[in-house]
Amino acid sequence: MRNEMLLEFDALSVNESFARMAVASFITPLNPTLEELADVKTAVSEAVTNAIIHGYDNFWGCGKHGDMPPASQEIHPGRVRLTCRTEGDLLHICVEDKGKGIEDVERAMEPLFTTRPEENRSGMGFSFMEAFMDDLEVESRPGEGTLVRMHKRIGVGPWIDA
């Protein structure tokens, strides 16, 4: 069976948990194992966080400066678009932003490469997406935005985990 959903939300860090929860709920009919669910949630969280903090530079998160953004910081009004499609047991996820884009995608995908080490970013985002999904494609154009496509077959995990 084919099923598709589309979410569009402001590029704010509060929406990171909303996005992964929404995808987790959407794929429930595929009957994923707990491990598959955790994998998908992690991958979505990485992709959406990247769009928010790198695509739109909305680095402000509630923890750091209290519940309100500091007055000095402008919040980019951009949006993140999340498409999620299931076809049989195959899950497709697409995370798209119209932010600043990535100059060198290959470099960005190297483990531990980060443009923001001072902000406690680990540089593991793309590595985690690759590790937790079956397939990952990244398209980006500087100044125009970034599109991340991920696929994963659900229901192939070990039935009972030792």
Partner: peptide
């Protein structure tokens, strides 16, 4: 319970 970028600034600081 949940650790993402949204929560991590506070913990680091």
């Amino acid at each position: 319970e949940e650790i993402d970028h949204h929560r991590c600034g506070y913990i680091c600081e």
